[in-house]
Nucleic acid binder design. Structure first.
Length: 322
DNA sequence: CATCAGGGCCCTG
DNA sequence: CAGGGCCCTGAT
């Protein structure tokens, strides 16, 4: 499906703003639903039942930021469609986040100040919907990253929608409920293993709208966590990622998985990842950052990955096995 | 060649 | 609350 260029809107993030740090996360695994180069991100998106292409451009500066959003689609969007979409983009990419209080704390902390200096203005956030993220989270479970990438690609190629826009050929997620007619066996044929069952159940739950992403955003932390854990296939690890990436919770930190434990040992304590520090020690260290602990870790983590991309921090290679 | 753990979760006892 | 089962793959 070839999409037409429909219109552009300029969004004004709060200052300071770091475009690439916000629109590209080097630790997220590559997926055919998006593409990035410095200053530009392309993203497929399903909004209000329509699949569209989005192009984000860095159209401002650190102190006077602007993001130009260009919409590609089949027919000209209504004003209401555009307005709600822009609001959603501001939410998903955290364009209105106020970073200054966090930076005041970060300035006096040694590993953190360097990360903040490099990524000044970066926002946490995630481009996908709750439903889409649940699919991604399921694929991450009990699998090396390489395999998660394969499964995501297989699913999008089989059930996603091919969108051609702005010279890119990308795949958009299917609508929730679209997997209803597909058998578990068919999904298993894509090497999903037991995850096929989880994805079938997720898809069915979301077709019935049993989880409302938008009202859940307004709920208190504990209620969000409980609601997420009650979704079939979501355990503590996946809920943790969801609370941070999708629900923008920054004031909790209660879970460190073994592979992350190794990385935090090096990142926070400067010690060898081969003899990881106890999880309790790491949590205590992280909780020092108080209500901003997730932001602090996000900055340290992303800074590490950007450095890795530049060819620094080679020790990371054996721990991530891409 | 066989074995095993890998960016967990569900279910049972 | 502990522990078995789940699936496939690449590493050893």
């Amino acid at each position: 499906m070839k999409l037409k260029k429909l219109l552009s809107v300029s969004l004004k993030p709060t200052s300071p703003f770091h475009f690439d740090g916000t629109f590209y996360k080097p630790d997220h695994f590559p997926s055919p639903d998006n593409a990035w180069e410095p200053g530009t991100r392309w993203q497929t998106c399903r909004w209000k039942g329509q699949s569209i292409g989005l192009r984000f451009d860095d159209a401002g500066t650190l102190k006077s930021p602007a993001v130009r959003v260009t919409i590609f689609g089949r027919r000209r969007p209504t004003p209401a469609f555009t307005t709600s979409l822009m609001k959603e983009i501001e939410y998903r990419f955290n364009l209105k986040l106020e970073l200054k209080p966090f930076y005041r704390i970060a300035r006096d902390d040694l590993p953190l100040s360097a990360a903040v200096k490099r990524l000044n203005g970066m926002r946490p956030g995630h481009p996908n919907s709750l439903y889409e993220y649940l699919i991604i989270g399921t694929l991450l479970q009990n699998a090396p990253v390489r395999r998660s990438i394969q499964m995501m690609k297989a699913l999008l190629e089989r059930y996603g929608e091919k969108l051609e826009f702005d010279g890119k050929m990308l795949l958009a997620f299917w609508r929730p409920g679209a997997l209803k007619a597909i058998t578990e066996e068919e999904l298993r044929a894509l090497s999903l293993g037991y995850r096929a069952k989880t994805i079938k159940r997720l898809d069915a739950e979301f077709e019935q709208n049993s989880v409302d992403e938008f009202s859940l955003r307004e709920a208190p932390y504990e209620e969000q966590r409980k609601a997420l854990l009650s979704i079939y296939g979501v355990g503590p690890a996946t809920a943790w990622y969801l609370l941070f990436d999708i629900f923008h919770r920054y004031d909790f930190f209660d879970h460190i998985s073994p592979w992350e434990q190794k990385i935090y040992t090096k990142l926070l304590l400067g010690r060898s990842p081969h003899s990881p520090a106890p999880v309790g020690t790491l949590l205590k260290r992280i909780n020092r950052y108080g209500e901003y602990r997730q932001l602090a870790i996000h900055y340290l983590w992303e800074n590490l990955w950007w450095a890795y991309h530049r060819g620094e921090e080679a020790w990371l290679a054996e721990l991530i096995k891409r």
